[in-house]
Amino acid sequence: MVDLASDFVVERPARRDRRLLPLTESFAVRVTLIAIALLFLGVFLILPLVVVFSEALRLGLRAYGAALVEPHTLAAIRLTLLTAIIVVPLNAAFGIAAAWAITKFNFRGKDLLITLIDLPFSVSPVIGGMVFVLLFGLQGVLGPWLATHGIKIVFAIPGIVIATLFVTLPFVARELIPLMQKQGTQQEEAALMLGANGWQVLRRVTLPNVKWSLLYGILLCNGRAIGEFGAVAVVSGHIIGLTNTMPLQVEVLYNDYAFAAAFAVASLLTLMALATLGLKTWLEWRAGALPARTRLH
């Protein structure tokens, strides 16, 4: 019994274990499968990561630092963060509102709304960007009106924000809807019966019940908002120092043969992604361990 866990370790000679293990594949098959998986991971995930950082640091730390504080790059970093700061709260609010409406109320067109929320996932981001160019661009539907009022959306920051909003729209709502559907409306009803108003129900009952999923959705939304390339590339116009986000700046630098600088910015994006991954794992662990945590209180 005590040894049971170690029976599952692959290195162990298979002869004695075969009778005990539910796995009937031979030692060789198991090793091969695991080797293939590791190789795949290595070539397609670990190796690129290593390349990104080694290329970024090829000219030394000093050059790396210099590349990052270069004014245009700094502008790109600022723009990316600004976009994320605007987009993430908006989409979090939208996600909560949509999930709340869909899961706690019955209304006509509910299924259509669910489908529409998923649209940005099924449409190529480039098309998403194109749509806004067609809508707000000079030749677009609203373009002339916007132009006469001096409002610039496409090839300017508002366009980037709108395109990013579009692409990241589903993240929070999609995290919340299944969970809130599962939870039903009884706790909300109980709170109402106890005299709570709508705002109190949301703040004291609904949100605490979904807080881990909400954080998780916000995190995914944030990751995508920072890394979005396709949609933003279409609407940004690539005005260096003005409308270039980090991913676009990487492309510009790379096309200028400034490889080390390109990889330096890329490494920064990668670090953000890794941090997101770490946080996500922590959130998953935290949410999974919730009953255990409650017990400690």
Binding site: Q186, Q187, E189, A190, M193, R204, P208, N209
Partner: peptide
């Protein structure tokens, strides 16, 4: 001024 006890109690888990 109505108190309601739900079938599955609907306690606030958090």
């Amino acid at each position: 001024q109505i108190g309601f006890v739900f079938q599955s109690y609907a306690l606030f888990n958090h």
